[in-house]
Structures are given as C-alpha cells and as structure tokens.
Design a protein around this nucleic acid. Structure first.
Length: 870
RNA sequence: GCGGAUGUGGUGAAAUAGGUAAACACGCUAGACUUAGGAUCUAGUUCUAUAAUAUAGAAUUAAGGGUUCAAAUCCCUUCAUCCGCACCA
C-alpha cells in the first residue's frame, strides 16, 4: 500500500470539522490548560518556528485528553504594535486591513497542521471587546496605590481618606492634590529619560532596542526627557521575587528574572549635577575610590553636562565632540578639582566609547573601564584652573541599602496603532474615562495615511479626539472648551505588552461582557499549566504578566492562584543558513566573497535566496540575473567562481532564510511533517534546519502501514505475555517522556517498537490497537485511518490512553558482571536466587577468569551489578 | 566586563537523579531486487591483533585533575561555543 496522505488527510479534515474534541471530558474534574504564546500576525505567514510550538502543544493536549483531562488549548492574535504600523505606512493601507488579511492567512495555515485549537475561544488584542478590558485594567491601576503596611494595592480613595485625617487635604489646590496622588498611583505620569527614536517617532522600551538601534528598522536611538505614563511595577519587586520559588520554570529564565529584579544590599554613590538635576545612583558591593568618570557622548548626562559648562568653553567642547563622534573610541579629558578620598583629583572624560552592545551613559573606574583606558586616541582640553563644573559632585554613602534593579515600566507610545489610554486632561490633571464608557475606541479614519503622510503616525492628528464629559462621548478636537467641559484626550497609546500581559485570563471567558472573567470559570481553570514560548521577548513578557496578575489578585479580580504560568518551557530557535553577496557601494559591481578583503569599507551586503546557490556557496549568476532584472548590467568580480557568504543565522524575513511549512507539507504530508518537527531534537534547544532526516520518518510511516496492510492477518486473540511486555515497555517510556516533555525520544521508541513488531511478526489486534492509540497524538490522520481500518467507527481521540498490563512474570534479574570496573558479561538470575553467594558460585562454575587469583574485594549491588576487584 | 548555560561518532541525538556509552534516525560503504523510485531489502560503519561472518584486547563523552568499587553524569582548573545584560553585580 502506498501512503496516499493527501486522500487520508482530506477525508479526516472534513470529519474533524464536525468533531468536538474539547467536549470529550467536559465534566471531568481534572483540567489541563496548555498555552502557546500568541503570535504576531505578520503578512509573511507562518514559518517553521511557529509550527513546532503548535505541534508540540497539540501532542500534549491530545495525550492529556486521553488521560481524562478536560483540556484547553486556545489561540489568539497579538495585533497591536509597530510592525503592522510601519508596514501600513509603507503600503498606505490601514493596519487593521493588513492585520485582518494576515490573520486569515495564519488561520488557514494553522488549521493545516492537524492541530486542535479551541477556535471558539479565540481572542484578538485589537478587538474592541478585548481592549476594553485592557483599558479597564489601566484605569484600575490609575486608581490604585500600593499600601506598604498591608502589602497590597488598594483604591486611591482610601489613600485620600488617610490624607484627610492627617492634613488639611481639602485646603489644598487641585494641582497639589494631583501631585501627591501622582506619587502614589500605580499608573502615573512622570518626566523621565526615555529611548527616543525620531524616525519612528516614538519611545521604545529597552527590549525593543538592539545594538543601540531600534529593533524594527534599525534607526538611531537617543535619550530624551519626556512626560510618560509609567506603571509602578517596582512596588511589586518582592512579590515577584518570592513567586519564583513555587513555579516550574527553566533555571536560566528564573535567573534572569531574579537578575532583572536585582535585589541586593549595596553601598552607593549619588551623582548630582546640581540641586535640580539628579542622575541615577551608582552602586558597589564594596567601598571604592573614584578616580575618573567617563561620560558617553550619546547620553543624556552629557547633554546635561553641556548645560553647565561655562559659555566660553561650551562651543569648544561641542565641536570636539562632533569631531570624535565620527571616529571610533575617542576620549576627551576634562580636568577637574573634585577630590576623592585619597586626595587625588577626579577626572571627567567625555567619550564615544561603546562597550560591546549596550550604550552606557556613564562609566566609573570600575573593572569595565579597563578597556576604556586602553584607548589611545586622546585629547586633553586646555582648561584653566577655574574651569571645572562646579555643581557636579559626588556623594559617597557609607551605609548599606537594599536596592532593586527593576525600574518602573514606561507605558506610553507616541503612535497610533495601540490601545488608547483612557484618560482626559483638565488643566493638565489626568482623569479617567468612566468604566461604563469603555472601550474608548481607537478612531478609524479612511485615507488617513495619504492625507497626513508627512506627519508622524500619531493619535493627536485625528480631528476627532476630545472628550465631552457631559455627554460622555468622543467629539472633535475643535470643540475643546473647558467651559463646556470638553477636554483633550491622552494622545499616547499603550505599548504592545499591554494586551499580552493578561491575555491568558481572557481565553477562559472570552465572551463575557460584564467581567474580565467569571468567578466560577476562574476557579475551575485557574492558571496555565504549561506555557510554551519563544525566547525573544520572554523575560519582559513574563515579568509584566506576573506583575499584572499580582495586581489583579490584589483588587480581587483573580482569587484562586498566585502565578500565571505553573510550568514554562522555552522553545529553542531554529537556525538556517543565509546567503549573501557583496556589492560595491554606488557602483554596479558585485564582488566574490574571497576577494572582499580589499574593499572592506566600501561594500554592502545583500541577502539572496538559497535557490540561487549551487555547490555549497557558489552563485548561479545566470539564474540570479534572470530573476533579478534590475542587476542586468552589473559586473561580477571573481577569480574562478563567484562565492557567496554563507552563515548560520536565526530565521528572519530580512535574511531570506525562512522556511515555509507549506511546501514540506505538500510533499510529505502533515503527519510526516509533524513527526519530523518533533524528532529533530529536544524542544528547548536550538536546532539547525536540515531536511535530510525526514526520510527516516517516511520509512517509519511506511513500516507502520505495512503492519496494518492485511486486515486478515491481524488476529483477535488474547495477547501473549511477551507481546504484553513489549507494549508495557513502550507505554512506560512514552509516559515518562511526556512528564519530562522530551517528545523526540518517544518517537525513537515508537520506531524501535515497530522494528520489533516486524521482526517478531506480532499481529495481535489488542496489542496493535493500544499501540496506535499511544501513537495517535503524534500523527493524527494516519492513526485515525488505521483505527478505522481496524473496524472502529468513533474517532481515535475518543479513546483513553492505554494502561500498563498487569503481568505477573517471574522476572529474571539482570546482573552486569564486572572485573576491575570493566564489563565482562551479563547473566540472568531467577528471583529466588537473588543473592551474592549464588551469583558468585555461578560465575565460578562457568568462568575461570579469576581462578587462582586473589580477590581483593567484591562489590555487590542488588538487582544491578557485581564488581570483582582483583 | 558581568551573569547564565552548553560541550558525546561524519550528522541529529539517547543513556532510570553515578552502574553495559553511542539506543533511534540520517549519511556513508558493499551487495540484492525491481514496476527505475528522492523506492525497498540485507550486511557493515572507534581502533588493534589473530586461527577473521568469530574471538581477544585497548582507547574514547572539549582538555587536565579530584571524589568513588564505579563518573558523559558530582567537584575544581583551563579552553571553545551560545544566550542575556539598563547604572550596579
């Protein structure tokens, strides 16, 4: 029988449409909530990295269902954020149109994986019924403060009551009241230095920046002072730290959470520029003397410093900084009269020194400035004695202090495509939109982009963005009038983490319009039992989600659990080779990879697709030109062959090394594709994409089909003991690997068992049935087909996972006999004779390898080993 | 610079919380078969010796040392690779 997967898949896809998988154990008391991080629907569609996660969760979901669990395996889409918006600007189409199209594509592809998702639970962050609750949580945060004594968040009204008792609260002006409240609110406004990207026109979080440039687009980032919404996540530092003890997460993820929170006792130094401008504090484990201070030219501290340099020298410094910014690793020395403890003068350097990846604002003479001091390019400003920055001084405190790394989360973005922050301002004092008027809908305007193409894509350009607080609705900007009680609305939107902070809660009760989640449902489903996700933004996402939950628990939205994700497994990235060629800048010349050394500075790297490559890394020039006609007149510089640069890299759209699952599925079928993705290696480790090994899976499937080829050969008889033992072994192995989440090992045991079945010609129906049930989560369609051929009408997924046979067998015990720590042979012994004397005698009878020799020692470990030392 | 991992054949990898290293699969070599297919089957695939389809011996889990009857697994040092990092560590 040839494996006609297309026919089988088509048949079962139709049957599965009517099949209510998630209803099977609806009334079971045991629940299992498994969750994949929801995808960002980019226009490019699914790639291999996505599918492996879905397949993985699906297998576990099907297995758990077979173990009588009521399972939940939902999926949704995280659709707000920069990528869609950037794409929208480029294509002049509205982001919601792009997102809708992408989601359609995603859904189609996901459904083609043989995966069961609870599609009725689907959520989408841009859905107004979803972001209504995101905004609701924000207002709750805005109206809460953290009570240190009670160690939880409470309503801001209670804080006002406390103030009323203590002070003359009512005599204070509104602005003063606001100032005080703003210091306590969990969502609050603060002027702070932010990563500003002028090209994108927005603030970015630290994890949105890579190598000092924006992750999306690679634009320059500067530090800028701006009024921003913050979440007071720092108040929860201790809770976030303690919660880690109880959950089953990988060590490295836990560690980086601990590091991020960074609780420790330290000595500290304060750097002030003058009374008004404080900078951050610097901490040391031990007391240290300060010999020099290094200030980065890209930092905000430098900008401040410039303000306080005397006018005469200001231009000089700025000019020099301009010059050195174009060079690598330069430093300028400014001599000062600040004296440290050893009565030595402290020098200030201004430098464009970069330490590996991160831009640091300031370096002190700690270990990491060693490299800095090696810099040879050095300028010294000729500075007169009286020139130094008077107001720049240091504090060194002797006392130890408990400090945290964690900073409050900056929670606003100056962009259009996000959840609007439900706040309006009266005389610059923020007030929230009433709860019952949520959602504050994101305005949709046609032709928006073409009309305002030259503007930044921002909310305040909408003509309709003001709040009428009498009629409680959104009105046009031009009506803003304090007398008529029409006020300006907040123009920033929330960052993309806002929607993903709490989404796992919403899946459980996604259609509830009155509450985020009903009590009953929360009590039953509780938290996520197994959370599966990629490694990209894991750390931030997990921390913010945990913070969000702890807050929701304080305000009693959540009552029955403390941590969002009980167990977490990190999905390893899949690497693939990328190919690139080099072009001379501004010239029509390509240069072979072995010749580029000469042109080092003048070349530009262009990624190309793999289909243009022959013989490992040679470019097929004719084919390349045929497909890329804009390079028609270009010259190819080469010796003999034109070589490309081949590199193993993370799959990415820009590097043209993405593998799309569709082609593979078309060629080999869904089941083979599923098995292959799991078999490729441990789920949590990085993998290199290589299709070679898919043959093994194909052969395995063929062998499997061979067994079930002739229905007549399959015997309905009580299975033999031997056969039962074989089945027991595989069941045990597979179950154990489910616990450890090592599914790839299970597949190798399936292969092994099939080999044994063929060798021993096992054709017993009961044995084979149990085997195929055990196997069904891995390859659903083929299992269903075989199940049907065995004469069953129900879906195989209605069946329970097999139990281990109770066999009473006089098990012979295996002993490994070792001589001087080396294995000699293995003997089998009946249970009755399981003792040292018997075994030694037996060996003496059969072997004479230690005859006439003195035995130093015999080590006997019951049921395992006998080691003889001579 | 700091922190966290990881290191097993030509390749992907297994090895019960110290107890037969390399299961399972890919690749390769040789042969068979045929409906000439990205097909299937059989055997081999660390090294050495011999009386050679067997037997015996030796080496081996990045390198070196330690603990132990016994280490891929535990401890120490070094090297290499990867990941994270915001001022500190």
């Amino acid at each position: 029988m040839k494996y006609n997967f297309k026919k089988i898949e088509k048949k079962w896809k139709i049957k599965h449409k009517k099949f209510n998988f998630f209803e099977i154990n609806k009334n079971s008391k045991k629940k299992f909530y498994i969750l994949n991080m929801f995808p960002y629907p980019s226009g490019y569609g699914l790639h291999i990295g996505h599918t492996i996660g879905y397949i993985f969760s699906d297998i576990i979901c099907k297995y758990k269902s077979g173990c009588n669990y009521n399972v939940l395996n939902p999926i949704g889409f995280d659709s707000f954020g920069l990528p869609a918006e950037q794409y929208a600007i480029n294509t002049t189409k509205h982001p919601s149109y792009i997102i809708k199209k992408s989601i359609k594509k995603y859904k189609k592809q996901i459904k083609n994986l043989g995966v069961f998702f609870n599609w009725d639970k689907e959520i989408n962050t841009i859905d107004k019924n979803y972001y209504k609750w995101t905004q609701w949580i924000f207002i709750k945060l805005f109206n809460s403060w953290y009570d240190k004594k009670k160690k939880k968040a409470r309503n801001i009204k209670k804080l006002i009551n406390i103030y009323k008792k203590k002070k003359k609260w009512n005599c204070l002006k509104k602005k003063e009241k606001n100032k005080i409240l703003n210091k306590h609110r969990l969502a609050y406004l603060k002027n702070s230095f932010v990563n500003w990207c002028s090209k994108l026109g927005t603030v970015l979080a630290n994890d949105e920046i890579k190598n000092g440039k924006s992750e999306r687009g690679g634009h320059k980032i500067t530090k800028k002072k701006m009024l921003q919404w913050h979440l007071r996540i720092t108040k929860y530092s201790d809770k976030l730290l303690n919660g880690l003890k109880k959950i089953n997460w990988p060590k490295n993820i836990k560690n980086s959470q601990i590091k991020w929170i960074g609780k420790r006792k330290c000595f500290y130094i304060n750097i002030k520029i003058n009374k008004k401008y404080k900078t951050k504090i610097f901490y040391f484990k031990k007391k240290k003397n300060i010999n020099n201070i290094i200030i980065n030219t890209n930092s905000y501290i430098y900008e401040l410093l410039i303000k306080f340099i005397k006018k005469k020298y200001k231009k000089k410094v700025i000019n020099i900084v301009k010059k050195i910014n174009n060079n690598k690793n330069y430093k300028i020395l400014i001599k000062t009269n600040i004296i440290n403890k050893n009565k030595k003068k402290i020098n200030i350097y201004i430098s464009n020194y970069k330490n590996n990846k991160s831009i640091k604002n300031i370096y002190l003479n700690v270990k990491n400035s060693k490299n800095f001091l090696k810099i040879k390019n050095k300028l010294t400003l000729s500075i007169k004695k009286n020139f130094y920055i008077k107001s720049f001084f240091l504090y060194f405190k002797k006392k130890k202090k408990i400090i945290y790394n964690l900073n409050d989360l900056i929670f606003s973005r100056q962009r259009y495509w996000g959840e609007p922050i439900p706040i309006y301002y009266i005389y610059n004092i923020p007030y929230n939109i009433p709860y019952n008027k949520l959602p504050l809908k994101l305005p949709y305007i046609n032709k928006y982009i073409s009309k305002y193409k030259n503007y930044k894509f921002k909310l305040n350009f909408y003509y309709k963005w003001a709040w009428d607080s009498i009629n409680k609705k959104i009105v046009e900007n031009k009506f803003i009038d304090i007398k008529k009680k029409i006020y300006p609305l907040e123009t920033s939107t929330m960052p993309s983490c806002a929607g993903s902070n709490w989404y796992y809660i919403r899946y459980i009760d996604n259609n509830n319009n009155n509450k985020i989640i009903s009590n009953n449902k929360e009590k039953y489903w509780k938290n996520v039992d197994l959370y599966i996700g990629g490694s990209e933004h894991t750390n931030g996402h997990l921390l913010y989600s945990r913070f969000c939950l702890k807050f929701l628990k304080d305000i009693k939205v959540i009552n029955y659990y403390n941590e969002p994700f009980k167990r977490f497994i990190n999905q390893g990235i899949i690497l693939n080779y990328s190919f690139s060629i080099f072009k001379l800048i501004k010239k029509k010349k390509f240069i072979s990879y072995d010749l580029i050394k000469k042109y080092k500075k003048k070349i530009q790297k262009i990624y190309i697709e793999k289909k243009f490559i022959i013989n490992n890394n040679e470019l097929n020039i004719n084919f390349f030109l045929f497909k890329n006609k804009n390079y028609k007149n270009f010259i190819f510089y080469k010796k003999k062959k034109f070589l490309c640069y081949k590199k193993l890299e993370k799959m990415s759209k820009s590097k043209l090394n993405i593998i799309k699952p569709n082609k593979i599925i078309d060629k080999f079928g869904i089941d083979v594709f599923r098995l292959y993705q799991i078999f490729i290696g441990p789920f949590n480790k990085k993998k290199i994409w290589n299709l070679d090994k898919i043959k093994g899976i194909k052969r395995f499937i063929n062998k499997l089909l061979l067994i079930f080829k002739n229905n007549k050969e399959i015997i309905k008889k009580k299975p033999k003991k031997e056969d039962k033992i074989i089945l027991n072994n595989i069941i045990k192995k597979v179950y154990k690997n489910y616990k450890k989440l090592l599914l790839h090992i299970s597949i190798s045991y399936f292969m092994k068992t099939i080999n044994i079945f063929i060798k021993k010609k096992i054709k017993n129906k009961y044995i084979l049935e149990k085997f195929i049930i055990l196997f069904s989560p891995f390859a659903p369609y083929i299992s269903e087909e075989i199940w049907e051929k065995l004469g069953h009408k129900n879906s195989i997924f209605m069946e329970k996972q097999p139990k281990i046979y109770n066999i009473y067998y006089k098990k012979k015990i295996k002993y490994i006999i070792m001589l001087n720590n080396k294995k000699k042979f293995v003997i089998k012994i009946n249970k009755v004779n399981n003792n040292k004397k018997y075994i030694i005698n037996k060996i003496k009878c059969n072997n004479n390898f230690f005859y006439k020799k003195k035995i130093k020692k015999i080590i006997f470990i019951k049921n395992k080993i006998l080691n003889i030392l001579i």
